[in-house]
Deep mutational scan, measured.
Amino acid sequence: RELEKFANEFKVRRIKLGYTQTNVGEALAAVHGSEFSQTTICRFENLQLSFKNACKLKAILSKWLEEAE
């Protein structure tokens, strides 16, 4: 439930900031050390990743959002 809420909020905030899914994937290299594909970001936003992978990505995306805003 919390993950679903974060995924929805993330998408809204990403769009408000003017980032595409591809931009986010590339920008994550600075935060995490490796890029993520547009497909991975899309699957996260649509809750199509495994729970374990989504939880890992949530932590990375939270950190990125803090820096982007």
Rank of each mutant, 00 (worst) to 15 (best):
T40D: 15
N53D: 15
E45C: 03
R43H: 10
E4Q: 10
E9V: 05
G33T: 01
L57V: 14
L17F: 05
L57E: 08
A54S: 14
A7V: 13
A27T: 11
R14H: 10
L57Q: 05
E4Y: 05
R1D: 11
E66P: 05
E66A: 13
L17T: 00
A27M: 15
E45P: 01
F44A: 00
S50G: 14
E4G: 02
Q21E: 06
T22S: 14
Q48V: 06
Q21Y: 09
F10H: 03
F36Y: 13
T20L: 04
K11G: 05
N8G: 09
T39A: 13
E9A: 11
R1E: 08
K16L: 07
V24P: 02
F44T: 00
A7R: 04
F6N: 01
S37Y: 06
T22G: 13
F10G: 00
L61I: 02
L3P: 06
T39N: 14
K52M: 07
S37F: 01
N46R: 09
A59E: 15
K5S: 09
G25S: 15
S50H: 11
S62K: 09
K58Q: 13
G18E: 00
I41N: 01
L28V: 10
E26W: 07
E2S: 07
E26H: 07
V31T: 13
E45K: 03
A59Y: 09
F36E: 00
A54H: 09
K56V: 11
F6P: 02
R1T: 08
T40C: 06
L17Q: 02
A59W: 05
N46W: 02
L49C: 10
E26C: 07
T22M: 14
N8H: 14
E69T: 00
W64T: 04
L17V: 03
K11P: 01
I41S: 02
I15A: 11
L47M: 15
K11E: 03
E2H: 00
G25A: 15
K11S: 05
K58A: 07
G18I: 04
Y19H: 08
C42M: 15
A27F: 07
C42V: 09
S34N: 14
L61G: 03
T40N: 04
L17M: 07
E69P: 07
L17A: 08
T39M: 11
F10K: 04
E9Y: 04
L57Y: 11
N46V: 05
V12Q: 15
I60C: 08
L57A: 07
L61W: 00
L3H: 05
S37H: 04
S37Q: 03
E9L: 10
T22V: 09
Y19V: 02
C42A: 15
E4D: 05
T39C: 00
Q21F: 01
S37T: 13
T40P: 00
N23S: 14
C55Q: 15
E45H: 00
R13P: 01
V24K: 02
G33K: 02
N46L: 07
N23M: 15
L49V: 09
E35G: 12
S34D: 13
A29M: 08
I15D: 01
G25R: 02
V24H: 07
F51V: 14
K56C: 07
K58W: 09
A59S: 13
F36G: 00
L57C: 10
N53Y: 15
R13E: 00
R43D: 14
T20W: 00
Y19E: 01
A7L: 00
S50E: 14
R13N: 05
L65S: 05
G25W: 13
E67V: 08
E67S: 12
N23P: 00
K16A: 12
K52I: 07
I60K: 10
K16Q: 11
A68H: 10
Q48G: 04
L49M: 14
K56G: 09
T22L: 11
W64I: 03
R14W: 02
S50D: 15
E2V: 01
T20N: 08
N53V: 15
A59V: 14
R13F: 01
V31E: 13
L17W: 05
L47Q: 12
L49I: 10
L47G: 15
E67H: 09
L61M: 07
K56E: 12
L3W: 04
C42Q: 15
V12T: 14
K63R: 11
Q21S: 07
L47P: 02
E35M: 11
K5A: 13
F6R: 02
F44Q: 01
Q21I: 10
K58T: 07
W64K: 07
L65Q: 01
F51E: 15
T40I: 05
L57G: 06
Q48D: 13
A30T: 10
E35T: 10
K58F: 01
F36W: 10
Q48M: 07
Y19L: 12
F10P: 01
E35L: 10
R1V: 07
N46H: 06
S62V: 11
S34P: 15
E9G: 02
F44D: 02
E69G: 06
E69L: 04
K52R: 13
E66N: 08
K58L: 02
E26G: 03
L61R: 00
F36Q: 06
L57W: 05
C42K: 15
A59L: 12
T39V: 12
N8K: 15
I41D: 03
A68F: 03
N53I: 13
F6W: 09
S50L: 06
G33R: 02
A30F: 04
F10A: 02
A29G: 08
A59T: 14
A27D: 10
L47K: 12
T39F: 06
S62H: 12
K11R: 13
V31Q: 13
